[in-house]
Amino acid sequence: MVLILGGVGSGKRDYARSLGYTDDEMSRDVFSDAPVLIELEETVRRAPQKAEALLEPLCTKELVLCAEVGSGVIPLSAEDRRFREATGRLCVQLAKQAQSVVRIVSGIPTVIKGEMPCERC
């Protein structure tokens, strides 16, 4: 599993496409058969208390795309804070399990763990 992080709109999906994955292979549903999981942060937002249980199914994916949501002013609402923290903690766990972690900044990928993933054969 390769974890791809970056801000909203930073180019994570384009990067997945550049590795040879098509849009049909991308799903927002953790439990689908699609090899690429996108918008993980939105799944966490809906049920932050269940984030930990996502770790195992996520580790079976080829790519997991998640927005970095922990920066900016700490939100006033406890719910928003829980969402940010649950997303952050889940990403720490995913990064530990991931073969590679790639961070996208302005469309530019930087490998922060492991090797740069190669294109799909």
Partner: peptide, 10 residues
């Protein structure tokens, strides 16, 4: 050492 990063990033 200055350490920066988002919420719950470790």
């Amino acid at each position: 050492i200055l350490l920066t990063g988002g919420s719950a990033c470790g």
